[in-house]
Design a protein around this nucleic acid. Structure first.
Lengths: 241, 241
DNA sequence: TTGACATAGTTGCACATAACAACTTAGTAA
DNA sequence: TTACTAAGTTGTTATGTGCAACTATGTCAA
């Protein structure tokens, strides 16, 4: 916290920004949203893809999370996704314009919910499939490393929390839930074990109705506590490598 | 990241600070280091206890972690402790002097290693025992909440990583290791289970020598990879509550 | 109407590991 | 030499997961 004898205004401050890593599942694959950097003269990393974000507006944003939510809504139209702080990155070298610190959030949401704000199509946006620990492309600033951290965090939390459930709409079948876990984890998940763990962890409760298709109808479920993550007591790992 | 048409200097920036939550074990109890706020006229929260920290100095600090290390060394004299980013807190209201964002780190270190820098005794410092999820005292700024988050994170990581090992000096006995785990977790830890887990996780390796006392001498061990946390495959929980 | 198909959902066994408790070992000190 | 203390080991039990085979219940085409 601020030291005493300084007049707070006295010395130069870093720039403060917020970036958001936005994940969704499209066509059975994890995707992340990126925006194209402008190509102006004084712009750093012109034309490169970057995480959506920008300066904190101390007039508009009452706190960091509000700022992240604003940026998220701008790009996706979604107002209340799962949003969690990922960390912060700050250094003299990460932006050629000077010392900056960025506060990074990550959000995950169902693809069906996305409707980008038509007013804010100034910048080009794109969804990129996640392969391995990145997207196989160098991003602007230190965003390659930030994205890698986000992917690691997402995968890691999928091992022991209900996180991937936020990739689905309000009601879903257990098979759909199992499927998004498998997509995020990047490996198959055993049906029987998954069901018993999910049910005994109290992660979901039955919803009215079933989902019909070309086979046996499936019971619909919803998250029991949609506001918070639910934790599993143990992880599910394949027995042999 | 910075948006395009703005000249970066154009609009007002938040203050940027770094705070550090420093944990150690003294007398079989977890303690946290706090500093007393100055009592000047224009000072916020005069005389209250707060986490050590201060403004980022963009001349001196090449990045956020360097800034945190500097503040840590100032208060404890320790140069390379276990240091991890906890998160960031930023809002218009957390400091009466204006919009600030703080990047918070947490460090844990052996009590024996602490020798506060004699040059920087300007501010009064104190070690406070952690009881439950705090220290039973209201802190300056939003530091009460930040400390609570740090304690939760520390406890949580003690369930499945080698984190508490950094409370000990380089070599230690398995009983000492078990003891710091029990102190951090706030509950007894089974001896036999602890030993097999620690050894099979490859957390430690034998060091030369034994620790003698009034009973059977104990083998000394050291961390196998002191630079990184080691993860346990599972948690250790008591069977019945 | 019926039988093939597909996916939902269940059951049962094998195996690994953790919790618990009782035990043995190896030193000190009176 | 014996009591004491803490280190370190062993064995038993309970639990839960991985795996695989099985049953249930719908659609759809012949």
């Amino acid at each position: 916290m601020p030291k005493s004898p300084h007049s707070s205004q006295a010395f130069p401050r870093p720039f403060t920004t917020v970036d958001v890593v936005i994940f969704t599942v499209i066509d059975d694959q994890l995707h992340v949203l990126l925006v194209k950097r402008p190509t102006g003269e004084a712009e750093p990393y012109p034309g490169m893809w970057a995480l959506p974000g920008g300066y904190v507006d101390i007039e508009r944003d009452k706190d960091l999370e509000a700022c992240a939510l604003h940026k998220l809504q701008e790009k996706t139209g979604v107002k209340s996704p799962y949003l969690e702080q990922l960390g912060s990155w700050g250094s003299a070298s990460r932006d050629p314009r000077g010392w900056t610190a960025t506060h990074v959030y990550f959000a995950i949401l169902p693809h069906a919910a996305i409707k980008p704000d038509p007013d804010s199509h100034a910048t080009e946006i794109g969804w990129f499939p996640v392969k391995g620990d990145g997207i196989g492309r160098k991003l602007a600033f230190d965003h390659t490393a930030i994205l890698e951290t986000a992917i690691t965090r997402l995968r890691s939390k999928a091992e022991y929390t209900s996180l991937p459930a936020y990739l689905l709409t309000e009601t879903f079948t257990l098979s759909e839930l199992q499927h998004v876990f498998a997509v995020v984890l990047g490996r198959p998940v055993d049906k029987s074990g998954f069901r018993t763990r999910v049910l005994s962890a109290g992660l979901v409760e039955e919803a009215d109705g079933v989902k019909t298709g070309a086979s046996r109808p499936a019971q619909l479920y919803r998250l029991k506590s949609p506001k918070n993550l639910t934790f599993f007591p143990r992880t599910f790992n394949p027995r042999k490598e």
